[in-house]
Amino acid sequence: MDNILEVKNLTMDFGGLRALNNVSLHIQRGEIVALIGPNGAGKTTLFNCLTGIYKPTAGDILLYPPDGKAKKISGLKINIITELGVARTFQNIRLFGGMTVLENVMIGRHTRSKSSILGAIFRPPATRSEEKTIIDKSYSILEYMGLAPLVNELANNLPYGAQRRLEIARALATDPHLLLLDEPAAGMNPQETNELDALIAQLRTDYNLSILLIEHDMKLVMNLAQNISVLDYGEEIACGTPQEIRRNPAVIKAYLGEEADAEVS
Protein backbone atom coordinates (compact mmCIF):
# COMPACT_ATOMS: atom_id res chain seq x y z
CA MET A 1 0.00 0.00 0.00
CA ASP A 2 1.32 3.38 -0.95
CA ASN A 3 0.19 5.41 1.99
CA ILE A 4 0.82 9.12 2.25
CA LEU A 5 -0.73 9.62 5.65
CA GLU A 6 -1.43 7.18 8.41
CA VAL A 7 -3.27 8.03 11.59
CA LYS A 8 -2.93 5.37 14.25
CA ASN A 9 -5.20 5.19 17.28
CA LEU A 10 -5.40 8.93 17.68
CA THR A 11 -6.96 10.21 20.91
CA MET A 12 -7.51 13.80 21.84
CA ASP A 13 -8.79 14.92 25.24
CA PHE A 14 -9.86 18.40 26.25
CA GLY A 15 -9.93 18.20 30.02
CA GLY A 16 -12.54 15.55 30.71
CA LEU A 17 -13.95 15.61 27.22
CA ARG A 18 -12.73 13.01 24.76
CA ALA A 19 -13.04 14.68 21.37
CA LEU A 20 -11.36 11.90 19.44
CA ASN A 21 -11.25 8.31 20.60
CA ASN A 22 -8.87 5.85 19.00
CA VAL A 23 -9.35 7.10 15.48
CA SER A 24 -7.38 5.49 12.67
CA LEU A 25 -7.26 6.65 9.12
CA HIS A 26 -5.06 6.27 6.11
CA ILE A 27 -4.81 8.10 2.83
CA GLN A 28 -3.16 6.65 -0.23
CA ARG A 29 -1.17 8.65 -2.70
CA GLY A 30 -3.38 10.55 -5.12
CA GLU A 31 -6.55 9.60 -3.31
CA ILE A 32 -9.41 11.83 -2.21
CA VAL A 33 -10.71 10.84 1.19
CA ALA A 34 -13.75 12.47 2.75
CA LEU A 35 -14.33 12.83 6.44
CA ILE A 36 -17.99 13.13 7.32
CA GLY A 37 -20.07 13.06 10.43
CA PRO A 38 -22.65 15.08 12.34
CA ASN A 39 -21.72 18.42 13.86
CA GLY A 40 -19.40 18.09 16.83
CA ALA A 41 -18.20 14.66 15.77
CA GLY A 42 -14.57 15.72 15.98
CA LYS A 43 -13.77 16.23 12.31
CA THR A 44 -12.16 19.63 12.71
CA THR A 45 -10.38 18.42 15.85
CA LEU A 46 -8.82 15.68 13.75
CA PHE A 47 -7.73 18.33 11.22
CA ASN A 48 -6.23 20.42 13.98
CA CYS A 49 -4.29 17.41 15.25
CA LEU A 50 -3.04 16.66 11.75
CA THR A 51 -1.81 20.21 11.23
CA GLY A 52 -0.19 20.61 14.62
CA ILE A 53 -2.64 23.08 16.13
CA TYR A 54 -3.43 20.50 18.82
CA LYS A 55 -0.99 18.05 20.26
CA PRO A 56 -2.81 14.71 20.38
CA THR A 57 -3.14 13.04 23.78
CA ALA A 58 -2.23 9.63 22.38
CA GLY A 59 -1.60 7.98 19.05
CA ASP A 60 0.62 8.63 16.09
CA ILE A 61 0.34 10.49 12.84
CA LEU A 62 2.78 9.35 10.20
CA LEU A 63 3.49 11.22 7.01
CA TYR A 64 5.14 9.60 4.00
CA PRO A 65 6.44 12.38 1.78
CA PRO A 66 6.97 11.44 -1.89
CA ASP A 67 10.71 11.88 -1.57
CA GLY A 68 12.00 10.61 1.71
CA LYS A 69 11.07 8.37 4.54
CA ALA A 70 8.18 8.26 6.94
CA LYS A 71 8.00 10.99 9.53
CA LYS A 72 5.99 11.18 12.71
CA ILE A 73 4.27 14.56 12.61
CA SER A 74 2.09 14.42 15.71
CA GLY A 75 3.27 17.11 18.12
CA LEU A 76 5.36 19.04 15.61
CA LYS A 77 4.90 22.79 15.25
CA ILE A 78 2.27 24.01 12.81
CA ASN A 79 4.68 25.66 10.41
CA ILE A 80 6.99 22.64 10.33
CA ILE A 81 4.09 20.42 9.27
CA THR A 82 3.25 22.91 6.52
CA GLU A 83 6.87 22.81 5.47
CA LEU A 84 6.66 19.01 5.23
CA GLY A 85 3.93 19.42 2.62
CA VAL A 86 0.60 19.40 4.44
CA ALA A 87 -1.54 22.44 3.65
CA ARG A 88 -5.02 23.22 4.86
CA THR A 89 -7.96 25.58 4.57
CA PHE A 90 -10.21 26.62 7.41
CA GLN A 91 -13.89 26.05 8.03
CA ASN A 92 -14.48 29.72 8.84
CA ILE A 93 -12.39 31.50 6.23
CA ARG A 94 -9.15 32.82 7.67
CA LEU A 95 -7.55 35.07 5.10
CA PHE A 96 -5.20 37.97 5.73
CA GLY A 97 -7.99 40.47 5.21
CA GLY A 98 -5.88 43.61 5.11
CA MET A 99 -3.54 42.25 2.46
CA THR A 100 -4.12 42.02 -1.26
CA VAL A 101 -5.12 38.78 -2.94
CA LEU A 102 -1.67 38.40 -4.45
CA GLU A 103 0.05 39.01 -1.10
CA ASN A 104 -2.11 36.34 0.52
CA VAL A 105 -0.75 33.79 -1.92
CA MET A 106 2.77 35.20 -1.64
CA ILE A 107 2.66 34.44 2.08
CA GLY A 108 2.14 30.83 1.09
CA ARG A 109 5.54 30.88 -0.63
CA HIS A 110 7.21 31.88 2.64
CA THR A 111 8.37 28.38 3.57
CA ARG A 112 9.67 27.77 0.09
CA SER A 113 11.86 30.88 0.06
CA LYS A 114 14.65 31.89 2.37
CA SER A 115 15.85 35.47 2.03
CA SER A 116 17.00 36.80 5.40
CA ILE A 117 16.90 40.16 7.13
CA LEU A 118 20.17 41.22 5.53
CA GLY A 119 18.87 40.05 2.19
CA ALA A 120 15.77 42.17 2.69
CA ILE A 121 17.83 45.27 3.48
CA PHE A 122 20.55 45.00 0.84
CA ARG A 123 18.41 43.23 -1.76
CA PRO A 124 21.17 41.33 -3.56
CA PRO A 125 20.37 39.73 -6.94
CA ALA A 126 19.53 36.43 -5.27
CA THR A 127 16.81 38.05 -3.16
CA ARG A 128 15.48 40.02 -6.09
CA SER A 129 15.15 36.98 -8.31
CA GLU A 130 13.62 35.01 -5.46
CA GLU A 131 11.07 37.77 -4.95
CA LYS A 132 10.26 37.76 -8.64
CA THR A 133 9.77 33.99 -8.61
CA ILE A 134 7.46 34.34 -5.60
CA ILE A 135 5.34 36.92 -7.41
CA ASP A 136 5.20 35.02 -10.70
CA LYS A 137 4.43 31.71 -9.10
CA SER A 138 1.74 33.26 -6.90
CA TYR A 139 0.22 34.95 -9.90
CA SER A 140 0.15 31.74 -11.90
CA ILE A 141 -1.66 29.98 -9.04
CA LEU A 142 -4.20 32.80 -8.91
CA GLU A 143 -4.63 32.53 -12.66
CA TYR A 144 -5.23 28.82 -12.29
CA MET A 145 -7.85 29.44 -9.60
CA GLY A 146 -9.59 32.05 -11.75
CA LEU A 147 -8.74 34.90 -9.43
CA ALA A 148 -6.40 36.74 -11.80
CA PRO A 149 -8.65 39.80 -12.28
CA LEU A 150 -8.76 40.33 -8.51
CA VAL A 151 -5.03 40.20 -7.67
CA ASN A 152 -4.79 43.72 -6.30
CA GLU A 153 -8.05 43.73 -4.33
CA LEU A 154 -7.95 43.47 -0.56
CA ALA A 155 -8.86 39.93 0.49
CA ASN A 156 -11.60 41.30 2.74
CA ASN A 157 -13.40 42.86 -0.21
CA LEU A 158 -13.75 39.64 -2.18
CA PRO A 159 -17.08 37.88 -2.61
CA TYR A 160 -17.53 34.78 -0.51
CA GLY A 161 -16.88 32.19 -3.21
CA ALA A 162 -13.69 33.96 -4.27
CA GLN A 163 -12.49 34.04 -0.65
CA ARG A 164 -12.92 30.26 -0.45
CA ARG A 165 -10.94 29.84 -3.65
CA LEU A 166 -8.25 32.23 -2.42
CA GLU A 167 -7.81 30.10 0.69
CA ILE A 168 -7.20 27.08 -1.51
CA ALA A 169 -4.80 29.14 -3.66
CA ARG A 170 -2.87 30.16 -0.57
CA ALA A 171 -2.65 26.54 0.55
CA LEU A 172 -1.44 25.49 -2.92
CA ALA A 173 1.32 28.08 -2.79
CA THR A 174 3.05 26.14 -0.01
CA ASP A 175 3.71 23.27 -2.48
CA PRO A 176 1.77 20.65 -0.56
CA HIS A 177 1.41 17.00 -1.43
CA LEU A 178 -1.46 16.57 0.98
CA LEU A 179 -4.26 19.12 1.02
CA LEU A 180 -6.77 19.28 3.85
CA LEU A 181 -10.00 21.07 2.99
CA ASP A 182 -12.31 21.95 5.87
CA GLU A 183 -15.83 22.30 4.49
CA PRO A 184 -14.85 23.94 1.20
CA ALA A 185 -18.45 24.05 -0.02
CA ALA A 186 -19.95 25.59 3.12
CA GLY A 187 -22.17 28.52 2.22
CA MET A 188 -21.95 27.95 -1.51
CA ASN A 189 -24.94 27.73 -3.83
CA PRO A 190 -25.48 24.58 -5.95
CA GLN A 191 -23.80 26.07 -8.99
CA GLU A 192 -20.72 27.14 -7.06
CA THR A 193 -20.61 23.71 -5.45
CA ASN A 194 -20.57 22.07 -8.87
CA GLU A 195 -17.69 24.30 -9.92
CA LEU A 196 -15.84 23.43 -6.75
CA ASP A 197 -16.41 19.76 -7.43
CA ALA A 198 -14.73 20.06 -10.81
CA LEU A 199 -11.97 22.24 -9.38
CA ILE A 200 -10.99 19.79 -6.65
CA ALA A 201 -10.86 16.89 -9.08
CA GLN A 202 -8.73 18.99 -11.41
CA LEU A 203 -6.44 20.13 -8.60
CA ARG A 204 -5.61 16.58 -7.67
CA THR A 205 -4.27 15.73 -11.12
CA ASP A 206 -2.65 19.06 -11.91
CA TYR A 207 -0.81 19.41 -8.61
CA ASN A 208 -0.30 15.68 -7.80
CA LEU A 209 -2.21 16.02 -4.58
CA SER A 210 -3.80 13.71 -2.13
CA ILE A 211 -6.82 15.35 -0.57
CA LEU A 212 -8.61 14.89 2.72
CA LEU A 213 -11.82 16.85 2.95
CA ILE A 214 -14.48 17.49 5.52
CA GLU A 215 -17.81 18.18 3.91
CA HIS A 216 -21.50 18.14 4.67
CA ASP A 217 -22.62 18.31 1.07
CA MET A 218 -23.22 14.61 0.37
CA LYS A 219 -23.46 15.03 -3.37
CA LEU A 220 -19.97 16.54 -3.46
CA VAL A 221 -18.59 13.87 -1.16
CA MET A 222 -20.10 10.98 -3.08
CA ASN A 223 -18.86 12.41 -6.38
CA LEU A 224 -15.29 13.10 -5.33
CA ALA A 225 -14.19 10.71 -2.66
CA GLN A 226 -12.73 7.28 -3.26
CA ASN A 227 -12.95 6.57 0.40
CA ILE A 228 -15.12 7.95 3.15
CA SER A 229 -14.51 7.89 6.84
CA VAL A 230 -17.40 8.62 9.19
CA LEU A 231 -16.93 10.06 12.66
CA ASP A 232 -19.51 10.29 15.39
CA TYR A 233 -18.86 11.45 18.95
CA GLY A 234 -15.13 11.21 18.32
CA GLU A 235 -15.25 7.60 17.18
CA GLU A 236 -14.83 6.26 13.71
CA ILE A 237 -18.09 4.42 13.05
CA ALA A 238 -17.51 3.47 9.45
CA CYS A 239 -14.98 3.54 6.69
CA GLY A 240 -15.23 2.52 3.07
CA THR A 241 -16.18 3.40 -0.46
CA PRO A 242 -19.13 5.75 -1.07
CA GLN A 243 -21.33 2.77 -1.98
CA GLU A 244 -20.56 1.00 1.26
CA ILE A 245 -21.09 4.11 3.36
CA ARG A 246 -24.41 4.83 1.67
CA ARG A 247 -25.80 1.55 2.93
CA ASN A 248 -24.07 1.35 6.26
CA PRO A 249 -26.74 1.14 8.99
CA ALA A 250 -24.50 2.78 11.61
CA VAL A 251 -23.99 5.83 9.41
CA ILE A 252 -27.69 6.12 8.64
CA LYS A 253 -28.41 5.91 12.33
CA ALA A 254 -25.88 8.60 13.19
CA TYR A 255 -27.24 10.95 10.58
CA LEU A 256 -30.95 10.34 10.73
CA GLY A 257 -31.63 8.94 14.18
CA GLU A 258 -32.81 5.62 15.58
CA GLU A 259 -35.75 4.46 13.53
CA ALA A 260 -34.83 5.88 10.17
CA ASP A 261 -34.41 3.36 7.43
CA ALA A 262 -33.84 5.71 4.54
CA GLU A 263 -30.68 5.81 2.53
CA VAL A 264 -28.22 8.61 2.95
CA SER A 265 -28.54 10.27 -0.39
Partner: peptide
Amino acid sequence: EDELACQATGIDK
Protein backbone atom coordinates in the same frame (compact mmCIF):
# COMPACT_ATOMS: atom_id res chain seq x y z
CA GLU B 1 -3.85 39.78 10.38
CA ASP B 2 -4.32 36.20 11.60
CA GLU B 3 -1.88 34.38 13.83
CA LEU B 4 -3.23 30.87 13.29
CA ALA B 5 -3.61 31.14 9.53
CA CYS B 6 -0.15 32.63 9.38
CA GLN B 7 1.36 29.60 11.09
CA ALA B 8 -0.71 27.21 8.99
CA THR B 9 0.69 28.93 5.91
CA GLY B 10 4.15 28.01 7.07
CA ILE B 11 5.45 31.04 8.93
CA ASP B 12 7.42 30.42 12.09
CA LYS B 13 5.53 32.53 14.61
